[in-house]
């Protein structure tokens, strides 16, 4: 098992045509069917071209006749395209079938240039916040409620579903389901300015029991105060927390249980539990976290977090140490 980003994201950029769920399945089948049709039609056209240029006189006369035009130009494409359209719409009908209300709900908001994640209960209340990562139970249908806070983004987990735009002022619903456990890479699939190419996330599918345990613990920690965030006897962690509060990090980031309550940037309550740093672009460990805090503009030019290059390496390390143990 490889670690790091490639391992975490199972290929980057995430490979298409490698479905891990029913919705991605139908998209993949349709893609291959269209490709096969394209090959057949191209073959027929090339063969006809050869007959027209080099073929025997008798064949050329047939090809040039009115009958050939009616069959090859009207009947064949008419029948094939109609069948293909009906089949394609039937195949992908599941992608747009109405929401029953029994699905798990996760609201994902596209921001320049990261993903805000909110887990909703059946009534639509936010019960847990995260960023740049969604965790879902295997075999459970999920509806992603997609929004945008600024410009057009697009939400795409190639392994799990089709892609759907995130449109300002609208909520678009995308169905997804995983049939096997794993970590699947996701990307923003609509150019959204500046570091669009570095706007990613991870979808993690776990066994339902495991997922439930994780989710319950998260919900409890998000509403109560995580002890690790509040009190610590480790001097480095205490220093890291103090630096985080003093240097304005709290103006944009929230850490539940502390006075850090900023909403402009990703929620960091569970930063240490996240697979990636910088919105799906670097594996999450002490080193990358330090690098990101100190030089986020070098890593992801134009993103909205300033590089904290005025802090010393020792100070950056302390902040990274504190954030890394928030789980």
């Amino acid at each position: 098992m490889t670690e790091g980003l490639a391992g975490a994201l199972w290929g980057w950029p995430p490979p298409v045509l490698d479905p891990a769920g029913p919705y991605a399945d139908s998209v993949t089948v349709l893609a291959w069917a269209l490709f096969a049709m394209g090959v057949v039609v191209t073959g027929i056209v090339v063969a006809a071209l050869w007959v027209a240029l080099r073929g025997p006189e008798r064949w050329r006369r047939v090809l040039g006749g009115e009958k050939a035009v009616w069959i090859g130009g009207v009947a064949f494409p008419g029948v094939v395209l109609t069948v293909l359209l009906i089949w394609g719409l039937t195949l992908t009908a599941s992608l747009t079938k109405p929401i029953t209300g029994d699905e798990m709900r996760i609201r994902v908001t596209g921001e320049m240039w990261w993903f805000r994640v909110e887990y909703l209960d059946a009534a639509g209340n936010v019960v847990m916040r995260d960023a740049n990562e969604v965790r879902i139970p295997v075999g459970v249908p999920v509806v992603f409620e997609l929004r945008s806070a600024d410009v057009l983004h697009s939400f795409w987990i190639p392994h799990l579903s089709g892609k759907l735009d995130m449109v300002p002022g609208r909520t678009n619903l995308l169905r997804a389901e995983a049939t096997r456990t794993g970590q699947f890479g996701g990307v923003c699939a609509e150019y959204c300015g500046g570091p669009h190419a570095l706007m990613g996330f991870v979808a993690i599918a776990k066994e339902p029991e495991e997922w439930q345990r994780w989710f319950d613990a998260r919900v409890a920690a998000d509403s109560v105060q995580p002890l690790a965030a509040v009190s610590t006897t480790n001097p480095q962690l205490a220093q890291g927390r103090e630096l985080f509060m003093e240097n304005g990090c709290a103006a944009c980031h929230r850490v539940a249980g502390t006075q850090a309550n900023g909403l402009a940037g990703p929620d960091l309550t569970f930063m240490g539990d996240r697979a990636t740093v910088g919105a799906g672009i670097l594996p999450n460990h002490r080193g990358t976290l330090t690098g990101w805090i100190g030089d986020s503009q070098g890593i992801k030019p134009g993103n909205r977090m300033p590089s904290y290059d005025r802090l010393s390496a020792q100070q950056l390390d302390a902040i990274a140490a504190w954030l890394g143990q928030l789980k």
Binding site: T2, E3, G4, L5, A6, G7, V277, L282, P283, H285, G287, T288, T290, G291, W292, G294, D295, G298, I299, K300, D309, A313, L316
Partner: peptide, 24 residues
């Protein structure tokens, strides 16, 4: 490959790695 997947580039400029080229 390891230097790429472990994210060493977050802080270091590394030969053969186009991104990231950390300056920290």
């Amino acid at each position: 490959k390891l230097m790429e997947t472990k994210g060493c580039g977050a802080c270091h400029e590394i030969p053969g790695l186009n991104w990231p080229r950390g300056q920290l």
